[in-house]
Design a protein around this nucleic acid. Structure first.
Lengths: 110, 110
DNA sequence: TGGCTTTTTGGCTATATTGCCAAATAGCAT
DNA sequence: ATGCTATTTGGCAATATAGCCAAAAAGCCA
């Protein structure tokens, strides 16, 4: 049952895991607008350059972004823009969480 | 730039993180077909009951699944089926990874 | 109540992730 | 070559995650 699909599910999980960090989600959003060098993103996020570089490395290894070296800068771009389409669904999860919490609070009050 | 969106991105990341495990992806797929009790899923995955229970707890806390206790069994169901729509995109990431690897191997050969 | 099943929780160890600093690497310009 | 900038890598400490076993909790049935 599970063992048959395990390898495939592990591959999927790796992609999702690479996206599962607020800074990396921010980077994905920015790269959807336009390509950016590491220094751009570092400035926007406000973390150490090495931290941003490692986040980008995670995204690159997952196949989500691609790097393009020009001069002494490295520009990153989104390799698979459909990633963004998913967030509507994630939002609906967040919405359902919110509703559940509201219902819970209502029960407590009653 | 980033600080403004941080809280929101953290919430999104929590949902993605909850999905970022092969066993939990399997559970999501199964629950999309029909609701299942913990014992069903335990049998299919082949892990300890406590392990499955904890995975379900992660999914529940993320708002992805809902629990329904009937008798001494607890049935879980998918709360937000659109989750599944995303996998087409994840697959395209995997496909692009595969293509990159093929290109790399070609370069090595040449 | 006592025994049975199902599920959750606590505790533990092993492993992975994060983010910083410091150092190495790479490219450009003087 | 030297200096300057941009990026990556190594190393480290703090924190989080995964999965097992054992034990607790909750519900059924006799």
């Amino acid at each position: 049952m599970y063992q048959d699909r395990k390898r495939h599910l592990e591959a999927r999980a790796r992609v999702l895991k690479a996206m599962s960090h607020p800074t990396r989600l921010f980077i994905i959003e920015e790269l959807d607008k336009e390509e950016r060098c590491v220094c751009d993103l570092t400035g926007m996020v406000g973390a150490d350059v090495s931290t941003i570089s490692k986040h980008l490395s995670v995204l690159r290894q997952a196949g989500i972004v691609a790097a393009d070296k020009r001069g002494n800068q490295v520009f990153y771009r989104l390799r698979v823009p459909c990633i963004l389409n998913f967030f509507g669904c994630v939002e609906s999860v967040l919405e359902s969480q919110f509703q559940e919490q509201a219902a819970f609070l209502e029960n407590v009050g009653a």
